[in-house]
Amino acid sequence: MRIGVMFPDVSGALMRHSATEKYPFQRQGVTARLRSLLKWNPEACTGCGLCAMDCPAEAIQVNVLDRKAKRFVFAYQVDRCAFCGQCVESCRQGALEMANDRWELAALNKEPFMLYFGDPDDIKTVLAAEPAGEAGIPADK
């Protein structure tokens, strides 16, 4: 039995700088695989709705206005998203991808958490069709 077995750890640490990061003046780099905001590629999407079906948080709605003309509105509720990556995995067309650098999502109101991707006119149509306060119309499966 000995006394003060951890003393060398303590004395060694005296010489070290503090590990606290001076955020927001200093930002640690993120890892390449970090999952942050979802990116949707309208060219590749076929409007199949698999991403919405598999999303555990029901954060996605795929509104199909015209499948042939590829008129889709992809509604993405960021504050619901658990950043699990299942939608990316489920999309067979490779239309979804998660950015790794858009992780600073704090905001003062809820607006930035409701994202609509698609043609601006189509988004207007979708928004006009939905009851106030609810996001998106049910995906056309």
């Binding site: 890892t31 390449a32 695989r33 970090l34 999952r35 699990c84 990556g85 299942q86 995995e89 790794n100």
Partner: peptide, 20 residues
């Protein structure tokens, strides 16, 4: 984190395999 993208809830599994 480097391996999976997350420190907790790594979400490494999918049914039938792994993600990365």
């Amino acid at each position: 984190e480097k391996l999976t993208g997350n420190r907790v809830n790594y979400s490494a599994n999918v049914l039938g395999g792994v993600k990365f």
